[in-house]
């Protein structure tokens, strides 16, 4: 296993490429382009159906059930989601530090600060942890919404909201698994600057997922 892991990251300098880049880096950009269209479709559908739900609960307005007279408050909890958004944005910073730590693995570390900044395990862990915290917030949000009467079957808002944010959550989950895998490789044999591509493509994906969240947070939570 350990030897096979070593093979994975063997530098591919002996392969001539037109751009001089590793093909995996080109492919991840193509993949991100495709993912843009995926989220564009999800977000457009959310916006098209915004305000068209026949029954509540609604995201920003309260709703009185005509049959029972029960009042359902606006369902989005913007302060809580702002906190989870902050955590996710911080994870992008940790991701940058993780990549820099791997790229500069071979440089001498003189001060304590340099040693902390150069600790790729720490930053990979912190990125994965921030992602996990974000997912926990989402799990909390989903369950509390269901308790307040908003299920995926309830109305157009429920269907579009859970599908859009659920798809994003699934992307964060995949990213966390990717980060944990890199962390495991780092523990097993250590990631050095020759492996930086492995971290680089994961970082591109991670930042993309973060950017998508900024769009979702703005359009779903902040826009009334």
């Amino acid at each position: 296993m350990a030897t096979s892991v070593a093979h994975t990251s063997a530098p591919t300098h002996h392969h001539y490429t037109t751009l001089g880049l590793d093909s995996r880096k080109v492919a991840i950009w193509a993949f991100i382009g495709s993912e843009c269209m995926l989220f564009v479709s999800l977000i457009s559908t959310y916006l098209i159906y915004k305000g068209r739900s026949v029954i509540g609960p609604f995201p920003h307005e309260s709703w009185t059930d005509p049959s029972t007279g029960q009042v359902l408050k606006p369902i989005l909890n913007i302060p809580v989601t702002s906190a989870s958004t902050f955590v996710l944005l911080m994870s992008s910073l940790f991701m940058v530090l993780a990549l820099a730590a791997v790229q500069n693995k071979e440089l001498p570390k003189r001060t304590r600060g340099e040693r902390i900044l150069g600790n790729s395990k720490l930053w990979l862990f912190m990125t994965a942890l921030a992602g996990t915290i974000f997912l926990s917030f989402q799990a909390f949000e989903f369950t509390s919404f269901v308790h307040e009467g908003l299920s995926i079957r309830r109305n157009l808002f429920g269907s579009t909201f859970f599908t859009l944010t659920g798809f994003h959550g699934a992307h964060v989950t995949a990213g966390v698994l990717w980060l944990v895998t890199l962390l495991a490789i780092d523990y097993r044999r250590g990631l050095g600057s020759r492996d930086s591509l492995l971290v680089d493509i994961c970082a591109l994906y991670w930042h993309f997922v973060d950017v998508v969240w900024i769009v979702i947070f703005t359009l779903v939570y902040l826009l009334r």
């Binding site: 159906y49 068209r52 026949v54 995926i152 079957r153 157009l156 269907s159 579009t160 599908t163």
Partner: peptide
């Protein structure tokens, strides 16, 4: 499979 309303034009007001 899950009873969402994306194409439920009858009771949910879908387009």
């Amino acid at each position: 499979f899950f009873g969402t309303n994306f194409y439920n034009t009858v009771s949910a007001g879908a387009d």
